[in-house]
Design a protein around this nucleic acid. Structure first.
Length: 220
DNA sequence: ATCCCGAGGG
DNA sequence: CCCTCTGGAT
């Protein structure tokens, strides 16, 4: 079955303790967008956030949603105009296709309502497991999985929770290690740590509260 | 130069 | 597993 070593014989790290330590370090880790965005807006902004900073996406959010307030409007958008609005977030050709396609499916198949289950979300163009997990948790408070972005993957790789580069495998490795009800919040906490401490370059290992468990730290 | 709260395709 | 797609921030 699992190639994961038995934690009683190989106590390399204590997953539960790592999670608790990070929770106390980042009590405000929740992604702010969920506090005032609708499911539709969370979906679109999450698609747009691929390989971009959230600041760059926030910067164009108001002009995007005042021009296209719902999925019906976005489904019939003119590509050049839409691309002009989202241009600064990068990958704008693909992103315009994705959010228009997703809006069209929402309009024609889901009655202009964002579905709240994984299988339906994955039928939307531009929505993979990462985006679906973000929407499920932040728009519907559902813990169906862990959203694996570059921060979560890097953190999981470094500490030794997963050795895979594949998002789905990293997610499965993490889901085996952490209790089901924690997955949504765990995503936010891991991302917070990846951004503020366990950065790609120049990680702040000296002030990292879980470096004692970290395979990457021991090797440097 | 290198990375960013990725998806789709090979 | 790999690659490509893009602009902006650092």
């Amino acid at each position: 079955m699992s190639a994961r070593p038995d934690s009683r014989e190989y106590p390399r790290w204590d997953a539960d303790k790592v999670y608790r330590v990070l929770c106390s370090k980042y009590p405000d880790a929740a992604w702010k967008q969920r506090h005032f965005r609708s499911p539709f807006q969370i979906l679109i902004l999450t698609i747009l956030s691929a390989q971009t900073t959230d600041r760059q996406v926030d910067a164009i959010a108001d002009s995007l949603f005042s021009r296209y307030p719902d999925s019906a409007a976005l489904a019939s958008a003119l590509t050049p105009e839409l691309e002009g609005i989202i241009h600064s977030t990068g990958f704008f050709h693909a992103k315009a296709r994705h959010i228009m396609g997703a809006s069209r499916v929402l309009h024609e198949t889901f009655g202009d309502k964002v579905p709240d289950d994984m299988a339906s979300l994955l039928t939307l163009p531009g929505v993979g497991r990462k985006t679906a997990n973000i929407v499920l948790y932040h728009a519907f408070s559902k813990n169906e999985g862990i959203a694996v972005d570059t921060h979560v993957r890097r953190l999981a790789n470094r500490i030794g929770f997963s050795s895979s580069q594949d998002q789905d495998r990293v997610e499965n490795d993490l889901m085996e290690l952490f209790p089901e009800g924690s997955w949504g919040h765990l995503t936010d906490v891991f991302i917070a740590h990846g951004r503020r401490c366990c950065m790609a370059r120049g990680p702040l290992c000296e002030q990292c509260p879980i470096s004692c468990y970290c395979a990457f730290f021991k090797k440097r």
